[in-house]
Design a protein around this nucleic acid. Structure first.
Lengths: 351, 351
DNA sequence: GCTCCATTTTACAACGTTGAATGCTTGAAC
DNA sequence: GTTCAAGCATTCAACGTTGTAAAATGGAGC
């Protein structure tokens, strides 16, 4: 059995509370006593029992991260960033996979095991705006993404509209006029797809280019295979376009693959841009231009905001935070008037 | 403040222990009492305090998974599988990233916060065989991978040698004779690289094909960029080869990209195979043949073995378990005498 | 040598739960 | 109407820690 404060105290010849005082760096511990205790701690290999500490102190030093699936690269990279950000503050991360199912998402928030952590970073996919009031848990929640706004808890989101607009403008700047879209969601307004479409349309409007639904590929799911399928459909439709905006990188990769199979050259015949700046976009053939939506910033901000909220649960109104983005030009949009330089986006960290 | 057993008891008009009995499905609780208590539980929205339960019962219902980085797709998919497997048994997963650094790996094992979980699934990268005795923690450990054997704890590994041999044979069966390798580790014998190289050499020997170090690309790190770099080096070297075995999928993808850039057609000019069966291999251009090393089986077995060991820490000698593998033929090795069919590998779950 | 204060240490009571042991009901058997 | 044994419910003591308050120690001042 592991050593306890009492064991250490017995060996050091002091009371167990003194040992506790040493461990917690309390003032008023004589140096000689401290030395004696530390010796005993080392001798016994004592390690504090965090469960007991949690029970007593009321906090656990862990945070929960709930995401759809880690096998989706976006969420794997997000989780990676969250774990690193948490580690910097001495927190561990406990991960729940929801599969993007509304029911599981609700379950995660009401599960008693959420209380094994001090807070929840929650990236819903199945729940939507109509569920805003259901975003309630026994611990502070930081919401990620654009599925739900005004839920009453802190919310961090990327600038979907502005970033998608910038991506579209990046293509327009290459002289492309007929920009196909992959991954739109029929009738959606407020999700990632809807917002990015809005940015796309704004960019077109600003240049008086008519919106054409014929070059928009609707696709509910955003896996690579869906990008491929949507692109095949567009090709079969026989419509013309000179660029493709994948609403995420995975879709863009799938689309790009189909284009190449069909004999098109990227970027010469068709320029392609994605969204997310996944690691893999650096290694595709050609490398994929994309938008970095500020994933690291999202992770770090989420941890920071959550910690503040844990420390002070009633610390002011819920915050809506948008992260800075940046268009990352790579080979898939290389052109005559474009050397692949990065275009910084505006930073608006606390709107 | 959240409701406790005592609050529920007060509302239900019984002693708090009776409430505990109801929650834990103890026998000898009258139906009428049970109903009363359940009503009170619902009315108060009572949720058991898992921290207190852990302290009292000595187990937490969580397991720790320590991996190098989630942004490496292999580990993201492994973590995904582990979380799903754990969820089936009602366990949560707590993830630690070691960055593959030996020091961090040792730290994870000796950290007091490991005790926030009941066991550790540990995938070391920085530690090696010489550290076998250091694999010790306050909780049961299940070791994954091939960096360390005979550590005294349960160990689950893929059949690297046999699987790599099968992958090589898959290429040989296409009539390829000069199979380049990407990602070998100079002088390594026991790690993934060393074992897969052994499988490669065994396959060659069995067919009396001489081993040629000139078509082996050494590369310590296994990211996409490294696969690309190794392949560029091989091409510059001017050596001839008609197939490529990437010691993992990521390397193979990087290598394949460089080959295509250089004007080679895959699989016509060069067949390429990887290792790991990452999701993305299904979507590259061409789709990448690979070896499924049994990742889901690894995850499920790890959870099962760990649970057994948690329940019964002295339950017999440590086990060495190997998972079944299977060669997955895709477009990158499509040939005349090969329709891309899958070739099952032997199952040897309990050697 | 005694008092007094500051410093250091200790005792005690929580935190919310479960297991062991004990006490109280109830209905059936005598 | 007792007695007895289940069946049911309760009391008590942990689990290992930290905060509070009280006690001990020690050195300075008289």
């Amino acid at each position: 059995m592991a050593a306890t404060l009492h064991d250490v105290a017995r060996v050091a010849g002091v009371s167990f509370k003194t040992v506790s005082n040493v461990i917690n760096n309390h003032p008023h511990v004589r140096d000689s006593t401290r030395a004696k205790v530390e010796e005993a701690i080392a001798a016994l290999g004592y390690r504090p029992n965090l469960t007991a500490r949690s029970l007593r102190s009321g906090h656990t030093g862990a945070v929960t991260l709930a995401v759809p699936q880690l096998r989706l690269p976006y969420f794997a990279e997000l989780a990676d960033a969250v774990i690193d950000a948490a580690a910097k503050h001495g927190l561990v991360v406990l991960i729940e996979q929801t599969g993007g199912e509304r029911e599981r998402e609700l379950e995660v928030m009401s599960s008693p095991r959420l209380k094994m952590s001090d807070g929840l970073i929650f990236s819903p996919l199945g729940m939507g705006q109509e569920d805003a009031e259901l975003v309630k848990a026994d611990v502070p929640v930081v919401l990620l993404g654009e599925r739900i706004f005004s839920s009453g808890c802190d919310h961090i989101t990327m600038q979907n509209v502005a970033a998608a607009r910038a991506a579209t403008e990046h293509l327009l700047d290459l002289g492309r006029q007929r920009i196909a879209v992959i991954g739109a969601h029929e009738g959606e307004v407020i999700g990632s797809a809807g917002l990015r479409m809005r940015g796309y349309r704004e960019a077109l409007e600003a240049r008086n280019i008519p919106y054409d639904d014929a070059i928009v590929g609707y696709m509910w799911s955003w896996h690579r295979a869906n990008g491929a399928a949507a692109m095949r459909e567009l090709l079969e439709r026989g419509v013309e376009f000179d660029a493709v905006f994948g609403l995420n990188d995975t879709l863009a990769q799938g689309a790009m693959r189909v284009l190449q199979e069909a004999g098109y050259r990227v970027p010469d015949d068709l320029a392609v841009i994605g969204f997310d700046d996944l690691d893999e976009t650096r290694y595709s053939l050609p490398t994929l231009s994309t938008v970095d939506p500020g994933r690291d910033e999202i992770a770090e901000t989420a941890i920071r905001v959550l910690m503040e909220r844990i420390k002070n649960p009633d610390g002011g109104a819920p915050r809506e935070i948008e992260t800075a983005f940046r268009v990352v030009g790579r080979e898939s949009t290389l052109g005559r008037n474009n050397s692949g330089a990065n275009e910084p986006g505006p930073s608006d960290p606390n709107r």
